[in-house]
């Protein structure tokens, strides 16, 4: 097997008045999760900060455990600031790894089974 051609991981930033949207594309893994965390933290540190941080995952090709660690790091930042963290258009593999690792409840997932929970430990409440 030859090395798979790996498209570069990119993070596009669209800053709105209340929400910042990050468009993720490529592989979110050991080599790239730091980049995403940096971008997200920079957006959260802005003054005034956003009310919602939306990660558009439709361009994501892969997410490994380091990618999940990156999402958890961002979640720490949003929780401490009271910002809602959305994962938009999560591909099946992303839903799966979040399900297995028991972390899906931390994010506002769009589409079926949308749940929102910013406070740790509170039971998931259906919304929308």
């Amino acid at each position: 097997m030859t090395e798979r051609p790996r498209p570069p991981f990119t993070v596009g930033v669209e800053a709105g008045p209340d929400a910042v949207r990050l468009r993720l594309a490529g592989d979110l893994d050991f080599d790239t999760s730091d980049l995403l965390v940096e971008r997200a933290q920079a957006c959260l540190a802005a003054d005034p900060g956003p009310r919602d941080l939306v990660l558009d995952c439709s361009g994501l090709r892969l997410c490994d455990s380091m990618g999940v660690a990156g999402l958890l790091q961002i979640h720490r930042g949003t929780t401490s600031r009271g910002v809602a963290l959305h994962l938009e258009n999560p591909p099946a593999f992303l839903r799966r790894i979040l399900d297995i690792t028991g972390t899906a409840r931390l994010f506002v997932l769009d589409g079926a089974g949308r749940r929102t929970e910013q406070e740790e430990g509170t039971p998931p409440a259906p919304s929308g």
């Binding site: 999940v68 028991g102 972390t103 740790e120």
Partner: peptide, 12 residues
């Protein structure tokens, strides 16, 4: 099913 360990304050 359960939560991963080492990253979140509460796990199930």
């Amino acid at each position: 099913r359960g939560t991963l360990v080492g990253a979140l304050p509460h796990i199930e």
